[in-house]
Design a binder for these strands. Structure first.
Lengths: 207, 207
DNA sequence: GCAATTTTTGACCGGTTGGACAAAGGTTAG
DNA sequence: CTAACCTTTGTCCAACCGGTCAAAAATTGC
């Protein structure tokens, strides 16, 4: 009584979830080409052929992972919206992005890996959905500037700078830790970063 | 009549140079594990066994490349020095780092790749040479702050932010281009970035 | 021109990897 | 119990990849 287009059973959904979780671990640590199906299968607690029963290929795992990741990834920018107080809005965006770097470093690294390789699989999304979203937010920022609520500057590069500085704490984590040294290790660095970034961005935007 | 430790012939030096140049191209585009010796040999215009006559292994090519890269990479930070005018000094550092992102994007990406993978091969350098260098520069910055020449903030996170924002234009180049769109493409984006970053950092540091 | 040395190459090898497949094991509905 | 279906696994394969090796080709020193 099922439809011709196979609906996923609950077991299938659960196993696919486990595999994606394992793949996120492995891919983000070793890169796509540096990872093997066996490693993912191992991390997922199943055999390679079993894994390939749920995903037809290594590529398909990666593609599925990327698709989900991008939704999560763009969420903070979607939330960024026209509000009474631009400073509050921007501060909130920075805070959310920094929290994502802290709570989802694997996702950040996987994304960074993809972009570094030239983003072959998500180029169309970057040029389409992402560009339009950024265009929209840039218009909001420009409006604030015209209204004299924040200092005039390039909204695109402002957004790039927020991305770069926040994601740095996920993507370059080992370097940050190495430079800060063992004494300044621990999650305290994220609070220091939050204070610093707020001062950096808000300080330069205040009129 | 040569000494026991074989001195490199001119041909050997030239060929090694050609190989390293080709390897930088290939490794920075595909990552170390995503690249094959054949690809490098191809790009260098020679056969694989011939390439392996000049470098004993793929690892050795990568290690040699990394070593050279790191010297170039830390040069701007070495130049950053105690001066009369902190603003000029910081502005100059930002400009030099941004120029490196523009002129040596492959080096930047290779470095980013290494850090992303956990920096297994250069960890000791990060914890040693790099940390000490940053510590030294952080002390200079703190001195400026105590003298009331720039606003008080965390010098380490300031340096991280400069790294992140400037390298972003090399490492995330495809994303930057995609978001700016075809009309804002071209090298003009680096000048826009320079103006923006100056305003961002100098604006927030001014007392 | 000839011998020693350096450079280049074709052929090959062992290990790894992505993926196929058929058969076995398990589950569910009647 | 049994037939149909879903899940799991052992085995296998072809392609790829890093690296070796011996022999050919080119270069160099005399």
């Amino acid at each position: 009584m099922e439809t011709a287009a196979r609906p996923l059973t609950r077991i299938q959904q659960e196993k696919r979830e486990i595999i994606l979780e394992a793949a996120l671990d492995v891919f983000s640590a070793n890169g796509f080409r540096g990872s093997t199906i066996d490693q993912v299968a191992d991390a997922a607690g199943m055999s390679k052929p079993n894994l390939l029963y749920y995903f037809r290929s290594k590529e398909e795992i990666h593609a599925t992972l990327m698709e989900r990741l991008l939704h999560t990834w763009l969420a903070p920018l979607h939330e960024f919206d026209d509000g009474d107080d631009p400073i509050t809005e921007i501060r909130g965006y920075i805070r959310r992005k920094l929290e994502m770097a802290r709570d989802f470093p694997r996702e950040s690294r996987l994304f960074a890996n993809e972009i570094l390789q030239g983003a072959p699989r998500i180029m169309s999304l970057l040029e389409g959905e992402l560009k339009q979203l950024v265009d929209k937010k840039a218009r909001i920022i420009r409006k604030w500037m015209r209204a004299g609520k924040i200092a005039r500057t390039d909204p695109y590069h402002l957004i790039f700078a927020i991305w770069a500085t926040t994601q740095h704490y996920a993507d370059f984590d080992v370097q940050v830790r190495a430079v800060l040294g063992p004494d300044r290790d621990g999650e305290g660095r994220f609070e220091d970063a939050a204070r610093f970034l707020e001062q950096l961005f808000i300080g330069s935007l205040r009129v």
